[in-house]
Design a protein around this nucleic acid. Structure first.
Lengths: 198, 198
DNA sequence: TCATAGGAACCGACCGGTCGGTCTTGTTTA
DNA sequence: TAAACAAGACCGACCGGTCGGTTCCTATGA
């Protein structure tokens, strides 16, 4: 049983996360979150200003975790293709592990369309990733791992692949070995970018 | 002003479509749809059993339109690469034209996760498209346009690209010439698949 | 060591408002 | 005139959020 302030907060957050991922933001009531977390509504509103604010906090945490895992993946890689392959593995891991709450991803995306506050917080990281990939590919070209291709277009393609794969995996999680498919896909992409194809 | 039964139905449908795309399914009330369409609630429930059923009908219409436009695109193409390029153009057109209601796409996807009825209706076309792409690519390989690659993986990659691009375009519609980017992206993919790369 | 004060954590009945959906009544049309 | 269509007042359920009150923890001081 949670005792400290932070414990209770996290307990509520984790339960809300699970419920939002499973049933969606709108369909999940505050009462349901409270019931699931074993706290009262009073406790809930003691810790969070609103349901919406809790959602924003989940989004921030989620983005921060993404940042951290990507950053560590790139640091360990010697060259650009390896870095990209590692990132693909990370995405594959996200698909596989249920605690990553892939359901939240579509939920965030859908709400980002309507909610200016969510949009604001999400669009910035998105642009950053795009620019980041762009630079990474530019670097790959410089280092001779890739042929001359538009870094921007390649970056958008990479992002699309990751996004689209996440969406497909969520839609029909059972049929595919998504990890394998993702690895193969990135392989295909890298082939397309490679300088010295046979 | 609508006169016939079908006119009124379509009038309500088109208004609901617009509102759902802009504000989301949950946030759009039946009363709002009625106000926007200029009909009463009585009229609404005379034509539709429920809000949910209207949503399902929108989904069906949307999928049927997708089917039709894809089918005609492929028929006109002489070889597989051309067909794929045409499809990319179609997706690009969908991004550009506001009446296609891209917002509905994420809405459908998000609800497909939770709602068994929506899932059921959407997953089948999805599998069909995947199989269809798979066969198309297999055909491309046979005809010597593509090198030996896994048709399944390539099909998933193509689907991912389309999905991911739609999502990105919806997220930041202004910054990119998405049509151009999509064309370039598919070009890159076809390069990756091409047999006789220089 | 213990009495006590005060605030943080927590409780849950309750409120205003909204929503999807119903129902009665009136109107148009064939 | 019967059937289809449309109107909009109305209903009950539910939802996010509030509020007055209780419990628990800890710090203080004598």
């Amino acid at each position: 049983m949670p005792r400290s302030r932070e414990d209770t907060r996290q307990h509520i957050l984790r339960n809300a996360e699970r419920l939002f991922a499973a049933g969606g933001y709108d369909a999940t009531g505050v009462a349901e979150i409270c019931r699931s977390a074993g706290v009262s509504k009073g406790a809930f509103y003691h810790h969070f200003a609103s349901k919406h604010e809790l959602f924003l906090e989940l989004l921030d945490t989620w983005l921060a975790a993404l940042d951290a895992s990507f950053a560590s993946a790139v640091q360990q890689a010697a060259d650009v293709p390896t870095a990209l392959r590692r990132m693909a593995d990370l995405v594959a891991e996200g698909i596989r592990r249920p605690e990553v709450r892939l359901g939240l991803f579509v939920e965030f995306w859908a709400h980002a369309q309507r909610d200016p506050l969510i949009w604001e917080r999400a669009v910035d990281p998105y642009r950053r990733y795009l620019t980041y990939f762009e630079r990474l590919i530019g670097q790959g070209i410089e280092q001779g791992d890739f042929r001359q291709a538009s870094p921007r277009v390649s970056a958008v393609l990479l992002t699309s692949t990751a996004l689209g794969m996440l969406m497909q995996a969520q839609f029909v999680p059972e049929d595919e070995e998504w990890g394998e498919t993702l690895r193969a896909t990135v392989g295909l992409l890298l082939d397309g970018l490679r300088e010295d194809r046979q």
